[in-house]
């Protein structure tokens, strides 16, 4: 806003508009950036939040290149509520999820589950997180959540392969695992209903259901979900949203990260907005407008509103 003459807005790989900077305002740009789409209505009652199940305190996380991507983030998720983290992709959400779930080492900070600090360091941190009752549906099911070359039943136990239900001692009882996979296929209506089929041959929506079934059926206290419906067909979206709400109503704490603002607004009971590795604001999905959220996602908060003006003044002075 301070140094340009024209502003072009890009969304989903296309230039949606080009405007004169002097004739536009941040609200309009935010709306263009987010885009107006039909808001998916999700049937849900008001949340009845209970005790704090997940608390993240002063979390700092670096990415693979050593760049700090999560900068001193603190928040809590209570039982019986869905907290959504909104933000433009690449503002630290992925690193935040990976860190809380034990996939990525944290630089500093504490993650508590029902008050007990989780020990997440080391490359088996995700295993300890699961044992403690934190389930994770990852952002990228094909790269993280599934081994697409494996058969469906093998993915249905990924991360839980040491469960005594799958055999005695070191032996893996594939018949028991397959029987359980068949049950879940029925319960989550995964198609085709064949636990021996290679996972790569399932559609995106059904692959996501395989991951959801695996993580939800463990009855975890905390469920964290990244991009719950990315690349998923409309029918499966509704099913997945309903499953998440069902878990909330069963008194679980749920953290959802999505770049789809509509999804966050319709699913979450409380929205946290993440920008440049920090939680820049909290909003109530019932009252917050798309424009307000869009502004926060672009890093413009009330506190910072004066900043661009100051830059502009300096620009004129020099």
């Amino acid at each position: 806003m301070a140094i340009t003459d024209y502003v072009s807005v890009m969304r989903q790989g296309a230039m949606v508009d080009t405007l004169k900077t002097s004739e536009t305002n941040p609200e309009q740009l935010a709306e263009l950036m987010v885009g107006r789409r039909v808001l998916l209505r999700v049937e849900k009652t008001a949340a009845k939040p209970g005790d704090t199940f997940l608390s993240v305190e002063n979390l700092v996380v670096k990415d693979d290149l050593g760049v700090t991507r999560v900068k001193d983030v603190s928040f809590t998720v209570r039982a019986g509520e869905i907290v959504g983290i909104a933000g433009v992709a690449g503002n630290g959400q992925s690193e935040l999820l990976e860190s809380i779930s034990g996939m990525r080492d944290q630089t500093s900070g504490i993650v508590r589950l029902k008050g007990t600090p989780l020990s997440l360091e080391g490359d088996d941190g995700a295993h300890r997180a699961r044992k403690a009752g934190l389930a994770h549906v990852p952002e990228d099911r094909q790269r993280m959540g599934l081994i697409t070359a494996f058969e469906e039943w093998e993915n249905a136990m990924l991360g839980y392969e040491d469960d005594p239900a799958y055999g005695k001692g070191i032996i893996l009882d594939s018949a028991a695992a397959q029987a359980e996979a068949r049950e879940r296929i029925k319960k989550f209506d995964i198609r085709p209903a064949n636990e021996r089929l290679k996972t790569a041959n399932f559609s995106g929506g059904n692959q996501q259901k395989i991951v959801l079934a695996r993580e939800m059926e463990r009855n975890p206290d905390v469920l964290i979900v990244g991009q719950p419906t990315r690349g998923v067909d409309i029918g499966a979206i509704e099913f997945i949203h309903n499953q998440i709400i069902k878990m909330r109503d069963a008194g679980k704490a749920i953290l959802v990260v999505s770049v789809e603002l509509d999804e966050i607004r319709s699913l979450a009971d409380r929205i946290l907005v993440m920008f440049d590795g920090q939680i820049v604001g909290e909003a109530d999905p019932a009252t917050a407008t798309e424009g307000e959220l869009g502004l926060m996602m672009a890093g413009v908060t009330d506190k910072k509103a004066a900043a661009p003006a100051r830059v502009a003044a300096q620009g004129q002075g020099s």
């Binding site: 996939m103 080391g122 295993h127 790269r143 990924l158």
Partner: peptide, 18 residues
């Protein structure tokens, strides 16, 4: 699992180094 997808085993918490 490690042979097919080391990111997924990290996600599963299997300890790739072990």
């Amino acid at each position: 699992a490690l042979g097919q997808n080391p990111t997924a085993t990290r996600y599963a918490g299997m300890s790739n180094s072990r």
